[in-house]
Amino acid sequence: MTVGVLALQGDYSEHIGILNTLKVKAAEVRTPADLKHVQKLIIPGGESTTIASLLETTGLRKAIISRARKGTLTIFGTCAGAILLARKVSGKNVPPTLGLLNMKIERNAFGSQLQSFEAHLNIKGLQDPMVVSFIRAPRITKTGWRVEVLASHDGYPVLVRKGKILAGTFHPELRGGTEIHRLFLKMK
């Protein structure tokens, strides 16, 4: 199995670092041709407007949607990645998304960088709380039918799953913890 990491913009190398720690084969995905060789895809943190515009110019937007609809791609989106997976996005200058997960998400819901924070999250199915960071983070304001909430913070869902799609509004890739990536790797 090869796990692709969308390498258009953002902290994709941090995700590749975690996959390397877990001894999983990782590949950077920049073109539809790259996507053909992967069974799973991580959409990293970064700027969702930037990544959205590059998904369009590279042709990856259509390619990812088509693989997801066929059920041949398991996807994990973190922060900007979660925004790009959401069906509905609120906030300023909203980018076009992949719309693969039935939820509503608000961009930069907490404000500027001064409101970025670190938190200990209790995650369903994991024994110990995990330290993660929320950087200019979005907030999931509504989840649709059969979207399972795996973790919450301050009353809002922060890690959700439906079928082959996992989305988190925080960064599990920055503090060395591997638990959520392992959870993603187990997803069928």
Binding site: Q9, G10, D11, G46, T50, Q113, R136
Partner: peptide, 15 residues
């Protein structure tokens, strides 16, 4: 400034 270093990582590969 760890959170600031985190934000810098989110800018990577960008202009």
């Amino acid at each position: 400034n760890v959170l600031g270093e985190d934000l810098a990582k989110m800018l990577k590969g960008g202009v």
